[in-house]
Every structure is written in C-alpha cells, then in structure tokens.
Amino acid sequence: MRKKTLMIHGGISRDKTTGAVSIPVSHASTFKQDGVGNFKYEYARTGNPTREALETLICDLEGGVRGFAFSSGMAAISAVMHLFKSGDHIILTDDVYGGTFRLATKILSRYNIDISFVDTSDAQKVNEAIKLNTKAIYIESPTNPLLKITDIRKMAQIANENHLQLIVDNTFATPYWQNPIELGAHIVLHSATKYLGGHSDVVAGVVVVSSEELANEMHFVQNSVGAILGPDDSWLLIRGIKTLALRMEEIETNTKAIANFLQSHPKVKKVYYPGFSTHTGYDTHKNQSRGFGGMLSFDIGSGHLAEQVLAKTKLFTLAESLGAVESLISLPAKMTHASIPKEHREVLGITDGLIRISVGIEDVQDLLDDLAQAIE
C-alpha cells in the first residue's frame, strides 16, 4: 500500500470480533488467562489491544520490525537511552531539541553516559568524534529550530562501519515525508504529540526499530520502565494518523508561501526553511525526503522585536509544541530551547531574535495577513 492508504488501512485497522472500522478502546488493566502462561494479553503495561493497534500502525508507516508507544516524546527518547549503560558514549546532533539536550546533560550524565554534541551535517566531524566507547549516533533531520539537514544514508554508513546504532528523531519530517529506516537507520522515534496526533489534544511518543534483536530489547525496556501510552491516547493517535497525509500536504503548501513572504520582507534578517534551494543541505534533504515539511524559523534581529511580533499575531498562537492543525509561533531562546545555555545557543545561531513557526492548515492568505500586520 502507498502511504496515504497505509495510514487508513495499516496496522490493525478494524476489530476482528465485531468488524468495527474504528478500533475499540480497551480500558482493561488485566486479562483472563486460559491456564498459566496461556494468554494473548497478560497485563496492560505489557500489552494492550488499542496500544498494539497503534504500535502496529506506526511500525507499518516507518517500515520497521516493531513499534512501541510511550506516554510522551521525551518518554520515548528516554526509553531509547535505556538501551545504553554507564561508560557508553553517544554522539548527538548539536542543534537538538532543548528537552533532548536537558536529558543528555542533566540526567544521562548522572549515569556516566558520555555525550558529545556534534554538527552531524558534517560527516568528517562525526567520524572524528567517535571513541572506543561510542555506541550510537543520534540525529534530528531537519533539526529544531534551525532546520539543519543531516545525510541519513551517510550516518548509517558510518554507524555500520563502526558497529553503532543510528537513532533518528523524525518528528519534523513525519513518516509521510521521510522514512529513516529505509535509509539505513536502526531506530526512529517521534514526539507523536506533534504531527502524528496533529490536533493539540494528545501527548505521546513512538519508537520503531529495524531488527528483532532491538525489538526484544526495546520491549524489555518499555515493560520494565513502564512509561506506556494509555488506551484513550492510543486511540486518539490512530485517529490523527488517518489524516496525516492530507494535513502534511496542505501544511507544506502554506509553509512555502509563508517562507517566500518572509524571505522578501525587508525587516526579516534571515529565514531558515529546507525548501529553499539556498538552504544548506537542500540537495541532501531532497534526496532523502519527499517533502519539506511545515516548520520554519526566521530572525527578526533582536529579542525585543521578536517579542513584539509574538504579541501582535492574532491567528498564530503563542504556544509550546508544533505540528498541529492550528498555526503556532514561539521564541526558541526563551521557550523550547531555554534549557540550552545562552552562549551555546548563540554559537548554534539560536539568537534572541529567532522566531519559530509551525504552520497549520488555515487559509494561507489569512496567515500571511496576520504575519504582515504583526511584523509591521
């Protein structure tokens, strides 16, 4: 099946008992066994029919061996990090989500897991960062919030040559536009709160792995740590995924128009959007993805001006998160990336005047009018 069809009919798309085309929500915490050790479901933390339907669906969409659903995107990332042990070394994209940065520097450091932040768009720098105890390369592509691009195939080659795991946060691209496992990644994850859910009404995370060995390890972590996604949220996520393709196409159309408007505006200093042929990594992204997504950032010149713009928008909602049907606007330096030290943010290019936009599905002219009046 092609992607659009797979989002409707992938995974466990109907109830086998009743034929219901909407998967029922199973609230059961435990299940009757037909004798000791003879069961399909044992305990809801270990397995749940509604969560299983979601996990099978996301596995199909990403082309992996098995999927796993967690209570948030950070729970999913944390679960993946539980695959490693004290003394291991992990290479992370330098321009990484603030929550991932906080986890790496404030939590993983407690367990003596060594982290190096590297510009993974530069393969030579990645090779130079590999140590004897390196176990994984963790990338975002595009990154949050500067939309930097990493060559996933190249990272997979480096990972395989050095017996490392390649982990890809695919939240921005979504499985509709990009499938890292097909490009050689071993683990792909999403903050499913974002585009997969798409309606600002669910907090969730998902992981898909490329091998049975990783599937067994990941299930052991999921069951042992227990940060599972509940059945109601699993059902909401299944429903959201059904319209993912349509939403992403409309969002991308709107984003292109907004990016072009900002690029030509005299008050805007710089626009970060992977759909521009001048964007660093454009050719790489075009070669590994089918679309450019709905995220862009632009620098208005100062934190004072940025906060003025954010205060004046009427349709763009000032809020954390992204990937929803409504357009959202934020100031990374003081919101999503506030946990990153200012000096490190400035080296990366996350200035006080950088504004991040998550474009929704509203009428694009209304969005353009809103931005125009806010900037003026």
Rank of each mutant, 00 (worst) to 15 (best):
D299I: 01
D299E: 10
D299S: 04
D299P: 02
D299Y: 00
I300R: 00
I300P: 00
G301K: 02
G301M: 01
G301D: 04
G301L: 03
S302D: 12
S302G: 12
S302E: 11
S302Q: 14
S302N: 14
G303Y: 06
H304D: 12
H304I: 15
H304G: 07
H304L: 13
L305C: 03
L305E: 15
A306D: 00
E307K: 13
E307W: 07
E307I: 06
E307F: 06
Q308H: 11
Q308G: 06
V309K: 00
V309T: 01
L310G: 05
L310E: 05
L310I: 15
L310C: 14
L310H: 05
A311Q: 13
A311R: 15
A311L: 07
K312F: 02
K312T: 10
K312R: 12
K312Q: 09
K312I: 07
K312V: 03
K312G: 00
K312P: 00
T313I: 11
T313K: 04
T313L: 07
T313D: 03
T313Q: 04
T313H: 04
K314T: 15
K314E: 14
K314M: 05
K314Q: 14
L315T: 04
L315V: 06
L315G: 05
L315E: 07
F316A: 02
F316R: 06
F316C: 03
F316E: 01
F316Y: 14
T317P: 00
L318E: 01
L318Y: 11
L318I: 12
L318A: 08
A319C: 11
A319N: 05
E320S: 14
E320C: 07
E320I: 14
S321A: 15
S321P: 01
S321C: 14
S321K: 14
L322G: 02
L322I: 09
L322A: 08
L322R: 03
L322P: 00
L322S: 04
G323M: 09
G323P: 07
G323V: 06
G323S: 14
G323W: 00
G323H: 08
A324F: 10
A324C: 12
A324M: 10
A324E: 07
V325L: 14
V325S: 10
E326C: 10
E326M: 13
E326G: 05
E326W: 13
S327L: 06
S327K: 01
S327H: 07
S327W: 05
L328S: 02
L328H: 04
L328N: 00
L328P: 00
I329H: 01
I329N: 03
S330G: 13
S330C: 13
S330R: 08
L331K: 08
L331S: 09
P332N: 08
P332T: 08
P332W: 06
A333V: 08
A333Y: 02
A333P: 03
A333K: 02
K334D: 13
K334Q: 15
M335Y: 11
M335K: 08
M335P: 04
M335Q: 15
M335A: 13
M335W: 11
T336Q: 13
T336V: 11
T336S: 15
